[in-house]
Design a protein around this nucleic acid. Structure first.
Lengths: 222, 222
DNA sequence: CTGTATCCGTGTTGATACTG
DNA sequence: CAGTATCAACACGGATACAG
């Protein structure tokens, strides 16, 4: 009798033609946008994603990956043997969400409630560099700097006032090592690299130090 | 006995120092970002917000407004008598979320699943203009065009390759009237203004027609 | 008209345990 | 390591009813 749900396709949609509404249907679910963040610098395995997302449970991670895959944002593929593992990667469209993630983060970081003592993933740090780069201060300088966080490593390439970051190793002028959170005082706080003992530098120290002065967190509000 | 929740401040937080995580704590709740969208062009009353948010219920709207107010994003104030009504407005920081909303919408609109037949608010349309403006096509042209949607009206000012929009009336060169959705074929689809009968034009028709050619939806993916 | 308060069905979340 | 199964708690949406 009362079972007639009026044929309402109430699948948690916003009935709104606005792109912002559509976007929130895609990335508004809990964990979805952070999952995309972890994938922005290249493919990752299930366990790596779990490690970068403090507190997510395995079943929710599975659900989100399925949902993002169905939406055309994530694409899963199995590496050929011997490395017979599955990896998740953003689709081309998924990679184009980078400006969304960076704009959100840049806006939110101005909140006075930001707590830098919380866990901080390597991906978050590397994306922070793209987010906080001061192009005018970078000028026409070119540099290649590597970052090492235990297992994974990244190469940041500065050219034409823009920063490119990719996972992996490469030919660089300097290499910085340390926990991602050790870089927060330098990148967010403008602290000189030389004053942070938790970061070790190999290669050209002058280049490393200059590189780390190119970033500035916008001022807090209120 | 079982009441010991282990002192866990599990208020639906992500334990993550990344700005994207903080941002999702603020705007990731259902309706929150769309509510901010409705406020981006100036203060609004409760009923106006309800009208622009298809399907939100009064209690949820109240909750979101309280939450955003507590977060420092929205600020409520009561207009002095005789207009003794309460209005909601973004704080200065709240207004700075505009790039976030526009970036999300621009990204999401490339999805092949976008359905332009859904309800479409006046604010969404006016923000679409800011979002889809082609600066190179606008060049150095200057123009002031008004939009009228029954009760509320907006003025769009083009100058220096950027578009400024504010609610209200003003001295303009042309005025376009019609339902917000009537503009979708023109703004999203590139259809000539003259071919859309649901839009009426007052003032300088040539300026109105040229103005409506300055926008282009980025191509769909897949 | 502008909200607030309460109730309740339902879906989603997340902890734990479990399987390949 | 990569996921699935189960289940309790809770947040959400919708329907009221009600107050200024």
């Amino acid at each position: 009798m009362e079972l007639e749900k009026v044929t309402k396709a109430d699948k948690r949609r916003y009935d709104d033609a606005c792109g912002a509404a559509l976007g929130m249907e895609y990335v508004g679910e809990r964990w979805a946008l952070l999952l995309m963040r972890e994938l922005l610098l290249g493919p990752r395995r299930f366990g790596e994603l779990r490690a970068g997302l403090p507190g997510i449970s395995a079943n929710v991670l599975t659900q989100r990956l399925s949902g993002l895959e169905a939406a055309g944002i994530v694409h899963r593929h199995r590496l050929p043997p011997p490395a017979n593992v599955q990896v998740y990667e953003l689709t081309r469209w998924g990679y184009e969400s980078e400006p969304v993630v960076l704009a959100l983060a840049k806006w939110a970081l101005r909140s006075p409630t930001h707590d830098p003592s919380l866990p901080f993933s390597a991906v978050s740090l590397m994306l922070s560099l793209k987010m906080l780069l001061l192009p005018e201060r970078a000028g026409g300088w070119q540099a290649r700097v590597a970052f090492r966080f235990g297992e994974d490593a990244y190469v940041a390439t500065l050219a034409d006032g823009a920063l490119h970051v990719r996972r992996g190793a490469g030919d660089v002028e300097a290499t910085l090592s340390g926990a991602p959170s050790a870089f927060l005082p330098v990148v967010y706080g403008g602290r000189p690299l030389a004053m942070v003992e938790a970061i070790t530098v190999e290669g050209n120290r002058a280049i490393a130090e200059r590189f780390t002065t190119l970033f500035r967190l916008p001022p807090k509000v209120e």
